[in-house]
């Protein structure tokens, strides 16, 4: 099956890079795929790279919150990387919060965060 969001593993970290606009079915498949990854052994972190997304609405936000919920149960930290300032502002104005999800400017900074938890912030 063609994957809209390739999920790679670097060291023990899962990295999911969204490649383009996702329609709702893609989002659901993405969530299923991620959930099956982070429940595998040797999952020490998850980065979701949203750099290319120009719209994050309540449906996508709900999916991120669901993923965080399971990741938290599994003790897997989640970092959202690359969210544009405009998207972040819009989410806040909508009253949507990604509470409990760490964010990073880009993929590299996200990896740094997972490798050195608690170093910055």
């Amino acid at each position: 099956m063609q994957q809209q969001v390739p999920i790679l593993k670097i060291d023990d970290f899962w990295i999911a890079s969204v490649q383009g606009s996702l329609h709702d079915q893609d989002v659901i498949e993405f969530k299923q795929a991620l959930l099956s990854k982070i429940t595998q052994p040797k999952s020490n972190g998850l980065i979701i790279d949203l750099t290319v997304l120009d719209v994050v609405d309540s449906f996508v936000t709900k999916t991120l919150i669901d993923i965080r919920g399971l990741a938290k149960l599994m003790g897997v930290p989640v970092v959202i990387a690359g969210m544009s300032p405009a998207v972040a502002i819009t989410l806040v104005e909508m009253g949507l919060s990604l509470e409990g999800i760490d964010t990073a400017l880009n993929l590299q900074k996200g990896l740094d965060k997972l490798r050195n938890p608690g170093k910055e912030r």
Binding site: D57, S58, P85, I89, T90, E93
Partner: peptide, 29 residues
Amino acid sequence: RCAKEVAKELGFSTVDQVRIATAISELAR
């Protein structure tokens, strides 16, 4: 995407383009 293009053509700021596109996404869904 269409709404974002129109907003851009009208000279709305990047943040406004995203606000408008996100509102459309909610109403369309």
